[in-house]
Simulated assay, not measured.
Amino acid sequence: VKIETDEGVFGIGETVPLVAEFGEPVESIKYVIQDWLAPAIIGEDPFNFEAIFDKMYKAAKNHLFAKCAIDFALHDLVSKALDIPLYKFLGGKTRDKVPVSWVIGIKKPEEAAKEALDFVERGFKELKLKAGSDWRGDIERVKAVREAVGWDIAIRIDPNQAWSVARAITIIKKLERYELQLVEQPTPAWDLDGLAKVTKAVDTPILIDEGVRTPEDAVKVVRKEAADMINLKIGKIGGIYYSKKINAIAEAADIPCLVGSMLEGNIGTAASAHFALAAPNLKFAHDLIGPLFRADDVVKEPLKIKDGYLEVPEKPGIGVELDEKKLETLKYGGRWAMPKVRR
């Protein structure tokens, strides 16, 4: 997304279409922006965030991934207009660096251990292991990784809602010997009461992810004491504007947050990194490693990750520049669809 003012200042944003998880394919995102959101805010002062987001809310309920692309572009635009890095517009630094964690998918224990050791040697100090329905395999994977990297490296796991309440309690207690940093969304997102039972039953901190997409969701989590932490995945929340609101609710309730990722490219990751540098109430490393999964991108200078830290650009705006030639080269004119699986 590109938003331009009548004075020629422009901002860029991006989003990630995730149909299976959140129901927003690229076609609907493009349609909602062009036909509903853009007409509602064209002509508005870009600094009038409250008015802009109120107009978008009234123009189209939900569609948070589409709104996130506009949010990133607006934040890039206004900080460019002020000739300052975005983190300064967001209040300035609350920390000197943005630590990031490496995410390891579900694979054989020995393969996970090898990958974990490789990225620890590259400077990563926190690791996230994906988990799922094979809970015995999950335990073996955690054991193998812990033995490979030692006890000074933080390990968290993310079952992606795969466990029942009873199973989550049992598995997490079995894993406590490996000193997990946290467990992310072990049970279905809709079941806050169930997650609250897990949170109260185990010593390992519980991080809620898919269960929070709006400020109203965050209020419910606080009231039910459903989790110890909140994952601010800015893409699914609708952008920095709403992430700030959720973080403020969490901070008032003494619930720390961390910044997650929908595997955005350099544009979305840069915007998220500025938020992570400026926002209070954040704890642990963040999952801002999307660019490392891409063979190419549409920016002139990719972000740099060194020794487990994401380097936040000091240039005005989000600090990355769009490469128009690459954008044209990488543009896909067909229809996006999941690849067919052979059975």
Results as ranks from 00 to 15, higher is better:
289 I>H: 06
253 A>L: 01
69 A>R: 01
67 K>S: 00
222 V>S: 04
63 H>R: 14
83 D>S: 13
175 L>C: 06
87 Y>N: 02
307 D>H: 10
303 L>E: 05
127 L>E: 03
241 Y>L: 02
135 W>Q: 12
43 G>M: 07
198 V>G: 05
338 M>D: 12
99 P>S: 02
67 K>Y: 00
9 V>M: 11
93 K>D: 08
123 G>C: 03
28 S>M: 13
93 K>T: 06
193 D>G: 15
322 L>K: 04
138 D>A: 08
93 K>E: 13
325 K>D: 15
46 P>C: 10
153 I>V: 15
201 A>F: 06
106 I>D: 02
176 E>R: 02
84 I>Q: 08
12 I>M: 07
169 I>L: 06
246 I>D: 00
110 E>M: 07
324 E>A: 15
319 G>M: 10
7 E>C: 09
171 I>P: 02
125 K>F: 08
117 L>R: 14
133 S>L: 15
258 L>T: 11
182 L>K: 10
198 V>D: 06
50 E>D: 14
30 K>L: 13
329 T>Q: 15
92 G>F: 06
286 H>M: 07
36 W>K: 15
161 Q>I: 07
270 A>L: 08
336 W>Q: 13
331 K>V: 08
180 L>D: 05
293 F>C: 10
184 E>P: 08
48 N>L: 11
267 I>T: 07
45 D>S: 11
21 E>F: 04
19 V>G: 00
24 E>Q: 10
33 I>H: 04
207 L>M: 15
79 S>W: 10
151 W>A: 13
50 E>M: 07
114 K>N: 12
279 A>L: 04
201 A>M: 08
193 D>S: 12
324 E>M: 14
60 A>F: 10
120 V>D: 04
89 F>C: 03
252 A>F: 05
78 V>L: 07
14 E>S: 12
342 R>F: 13
212 V>T: 01
279 A>M: 11
180 L>G: 05
272 S>N: 12
166 A>K: 15
146 R>P: 04
143 K>Y: 05
337 A>V: 11
262 M>A: 12
234 I>L: 00
13 G>Q: 03
85 P>K: 03
229 M>E: 07
117 L>I: 06
319 G>Q: 10
200 K>D: 11
73 A>R: 11
2 K>Y: 03
216 E>L: 13
246 I>W: 00
195 L>C: 08
224 K>Y: 00
280 P>T: 12
270 A>Y: 06
231 N>P: 06
156 R>Q: 12
184 E>W: 11
62 N>E: 12
122 R>T: 01
282 L>N: 09
340 K>W: 13
41 I>N: 11
69 A>T: 02
206 I>H: 05
314 E>N: 13
336 W>V: 14
277 L>H: 06
79 S>H: 09
52 I>T: 08
315 K>Q: 13
10 F>V: 07
217 D>Y: 00
28 S>K: 14
275 F>S: 05
209 D>P: 03
22 F>I: 01
108 K>I: 04
65 F>V: 01
24 E>D: 09
316 P>M: 06
